[in-house]
Simulated scan of single mutants.
Amino acid sequence: MTRKLLATAATAAALIALAACSESAPQDPGAEDAEAPGMEEQDGMPEMPEMPEPDIEDVPDVVATVNGTDIAGDEFVTLYQMQFQQMAMESQASGQEVDQNELKSQTLNSMVDSELLVQDAHERGYEASEEDVEALLDQTATSNQMESVEELLGVYAEQGVTEEQVRDDAQTQLLVQELVENDIEVDEPTDEEVVELYESMGLGEDEENGYELEEIRPELEAQVRNQNRSEAVGAHVDDLRSDAEVQTYL
């Protein structure tokens, strides 16, 4: 099994986010014209900076080896290009240049972490069948208001991701999900954590467009639970890394 394009414990969320982004309709140019008539004819308007290009020339055929399993360079390139595109769009808005060395390091680390989690899941006897994978992809397509898995796969194809890679990543997500649900202890949200989040987000009923705490408690608890899950998975990965043989070649 190849590793890993959406290499995090939240692979399903990444699948959904990418699909939703790709499905977003472009803004109506007519609306822009209504807000700023004659914009195209104004010589003094600043031009948007050109989108930078990802630096992938020196990526080796194998970017890392994790307990004897290689992580392929072409899979790293696919994931890196996807993440770089998102960061580049953000950099255009902020004016801050993308640190490609840092982004490469983050991408590679996420792939190594994913491989460690998958290996751990296999060692514990977890499996993900083709039927399970199909069900997850169908759920992802439906949640993004797509009519079929084929449509979802088409969205990924436009991003340079093959069907095999998408299905492989879905299998990874299922394996990690089994691992998290059965073997990684995740703390339940405390009332203190929920109140702290509520206050930090400025959602109080005295705020403009605010809410009563109990009105949005389920959403707040879900967010705290997700944060606790991420921290628990991160701690588990740290434990796996401490006993793993990891070599990186970037």
Rank of each mutant, 00 (worst) to 15 (best):
G204C: 07
Q83E: 11
D183L: 06
F84M: 04
S129Q: 04
P189R: 02
M111I: 08
E193A: 12
V133Y: 02
T11M: 10
E214S: 08
I216D: 07
E150M: 06
A25T: 12
S22Q: 13
G125Y: 03
Q159C: 09
T8C: 05
E214H: 02
V77I: 13
E90F: 01
D183V: 02
S129T: 14
E188V: 04
Q96W: 00
M39E: 10
Q106V: 10
E231Y: 01
P60F: 00
E231Q: 11
G202D: 10
Y156N: 05
E151C: 06
E131M: 02
M146N: 07
E181P: 12
Q27I: 14
L152A: 12
S94D: 00
A244T: 03
D70Y: 01
F84W: 01
S94P: 00
E75Y: 06
E47F: 06
D28A: 11
V118T: 11
E50N: 10
G234D: 15
N144C: 14
D33S: 08
S110M: 04
D238K: 13
S94C: 03
A7S: 11
T248G: 05
M111K: 01
E245N: 08
T248P: 05
D187E: 15
A121W: 03
I216H: 02
L220W: 04
A10T: 14
P29V: 04
Q165R: 12
E130F: 03
E151H: 05
P52I: 01
E123C: 00
E205A: 12
E193F: 01
E221H: 01
T2P: 15
Q85M: 10
D33F: 01
V98M: 00
N182S: 12
A19E: 10
E219C: 00
A170S: 13
M39S: 08
A17H: 11
S242V: 03
V133E: 08
D99F: 00
V161C: 07
F76N: 05
E147Y: 04
T190G: 12
S22R: 13
E35D: 07
E181A: 15
V59H: 04
Q86T: 07
K4P: 05
S143K: 07
E196K: 01
Q85N: 11
Y126H: 14
M201E: 09
M111G: 09
K4S: 11
L153A: 06
V59E: 05
D132R: 01
D187H: 06
V166E: 02
L15I: 14
P29E: 06
L103T: 04
R229V: 09
L240Y: 03
Y211H: 14
S242H: 05
S230L: 09
E158T: 02
E208D: 13
E32A: 09
G44S: 13
D168A: 13
G154L: 05
L15R: 06
V224H: 01
S143D: 15
L116C: 09
R225V: 07
Q83D: 11
Q119T: 07
V118W: 01
V224T: 05
M45R: 13
